[in-house]
């Protein structure tokens, strides 16, 4: 790995502070959009080689076959994938969270489809809020592909990781979220692809230079 293609400790710290700012402002806005108070916390930025990505995600997201995972790709100067994981036991809670807000009446026979619909919608909004706020701070604009849903199973994860070019390293931005009143929590991980590292280095430098 060439040294100019990895983030150094200082750059990771700047990124961590940016995430802290971005997610703080995202929670305040999400509170209004979702009408629910939400905490986004414990942000951390790390570099992980793609070859170790699977094990890293499985361990740090506490994935099991029963987890639900929403994945969404984003494009632009800043590009990569975001995954959001819900532990399995909270799914019914999530539905009540949104159905209290008149979710479209779905045929009860297809409750399974509705489960994933609610997860996709919540996942999409949370991921969009986090990525949107980081992009804003870094002065860029991203576009998104429709989110997809999977379990935390090994094969679903393989499918997801195979999309990252090897050999390379990914910058991982991760954090936890929780909905106050609903005792719901989950984790979000943003995996930045290798080809945006140089842009990211430049943007972090510009961000700090704006205070000179």
């Amino acid at each position: 790995m060439k040294s100019e293609n990895i983030l150094n400790v200082t750059e990771l710290l700047i990124l961590q502070e940016l995430m802290n700012i971005a997610f703080g402002s995202a929670s305040a806005d999400l509170e209004e959009v979702l009408d629910i108070s939400i905490d986004l916390k414990v942000p951390a930025a790390e570099m992980v080689p793609v070859t170790k990505l699977k094990k890293y995600i499985q361990e740090s997201m506490a994935l099991t076959n029963k987890s639900s995972m929403v994945e969404e790709k984003f494009w632009g100067d800043f590009n990569g994938s975001a995954i959001l994981v819900f532990p399995v036991e909270i799914q019914k809670n999530i539905i009540s969270l949104l159905s209290a807000h008149d979710y479209p009446a779905t045929d009860m026979e297809h409750i399974e489809g509705m489960d994933s619909g609610v997860l996709l919608e919540i996942g999409n909004i949370l991921i969009g809020a986090c990525i949107g706020k980081i992009s804003e701070l870094l002065n860029t604009v991203v576009t998104y592909s429709p989110p997809s849903i999977g379990s935390g199973s090994s094969s679903d994860l393989d499918f997801f990781i195979d999309k990252f070019e090897q050999p390379s390293s990914a910058i991982i931005l991760k954090m936890e979220f929780s909905f106050h009143q609903k005792h719901l929590n989950g984790k979000i991980m943003i995996i930045t692809s290798y080809n945006s590292i140089n842009w990211l280095k430049k943007s972090l430098k510009l961000f700090m230079e704006s205070y000179e």
């Binding site: 700012i21 929670s27 509170e31």
Partner: peptide, 27 residues
């Protein structure tokens, strides 16, 4: 702070903070 939730802002003011500013600060 980055925490801009209404509840947090009103709590620090109750606790006697002079003001609550959002991150990042500007000179």
């Amino acid at each position: 702070s980055a925490d801009r939730q209404k509840a947090s802002v009103s709590r620090v003011l109750e606790l006697g903070a002079w003001n609550s500013l959002k991150k990042p600060p500007s000179p």
